[in-house]
Design a protein around this nucleic acid. Structure first.
Ligand SMILES: [Mn+2]
Ligand SMILES: [Mn+2]
Ligand SMILES: [Zn+2]
Ligand SMILES: [Zn+2]
Lengths: 126, 126
DNA sequence: ATTTAAATAGTAATGATTACTATTATTAAC
DNA sequence: GTTAATAATAGTAATCATTACTATTTAAAT
């Protein structure tokens, strides 16, 4: 894989945010640096970076989101503001459990918890 | 909401399978009974049945799947044959944990574990 | 500097889902 | 049973995210 300034920029943009951005968000950011960058280029490089293990992809409802954090982790999704927060749950036991109970060889565990984040709590609850 | 034979059929189709079908799969099944049923009708009724709590929707990668099982549960997804299996994990503690650790009021927990189902294991592993 | 092919920009195509609209069918009132 | 009101439908068009295509550009090896 040879160098391209487009791919470098796209990787930078993903790695500089915690917002779990969509392809379109990344595209708009990228246009500020390379005004004629193509959306196809963004998608192609995001897939490529994912294949190379540089970034992660997951799906929020029916749209793809990109994550610089390649270490296994889980997500909290706020139903009010849409924010997606990284969390680490202790699910070391889960793989063993599903192997034992369901004879299923787990490779990837994806946990998304939706609800209401602390920004929307009133004083009483705080 | 008034009666329609289309909605009744759609609900029946979802409730008679464990396959977590897509809208298109349901549409094709429905056409065998009502040959001129419209795909829009299928989508509209699936949304409606979901709003009324009769069925559940979740997203497998970027496409919607419908589930007769409205009780909270989790899924195993086989990367070889695509089968999606219902499981029940004991995550009663999770809501408390995220409230305590992250001040996040959990409403819905979605766990999908991908890997290899028992159909693909060889004799040694069995 | 020349050559080779990977990567790109721009655009077209696809697939899932939603929106629109004239027509049909359910249901309640008479 | 007939009528009236309007929810639901079929058929079609539009939208949105993503992928495919292709002529041109560009990285980088010789
Ligand atoms: Mn994350
Ligand atoms: Mn299920
Ligand atoms: Zn929030
Ligand atoms: Zn399988």
């Amino acid at each position: 894989m040879r160098f391209s300034k487009q791919r470098e920029l796209i990787q930078d943009i993903v790695q500089r945010t915690n917002s779990h951005p969509t392809a379109n968000w990344i595209f708009n950011k990228a246009k500020k640096e390379i005004s004629n960058i193509s959306l196809g280029t963004v998608y192609r490089n995001l897939s490529q970076l994912n294949k190379d293990g540089v970034i992660n992809i997951f799906y929020d409802d029916n749209i793809a989101r990109y994550d610089w954090n390649t270490v296994a982790h889980d997500h909290l999704k706020c139903n009010k503001c849409g924010k997606i927060i990284d969390i680490k749950l202790h699910n070391r036991e889960l793989k063993k459990e599903v192997l034992k109970q369901y004879k299923f060889e787990a490779e990837n565990i994806e946990i998304t918890i939706s609800g209401i984040c602390e920004n929307h709590m009133n004083f009483k609850e705080k």
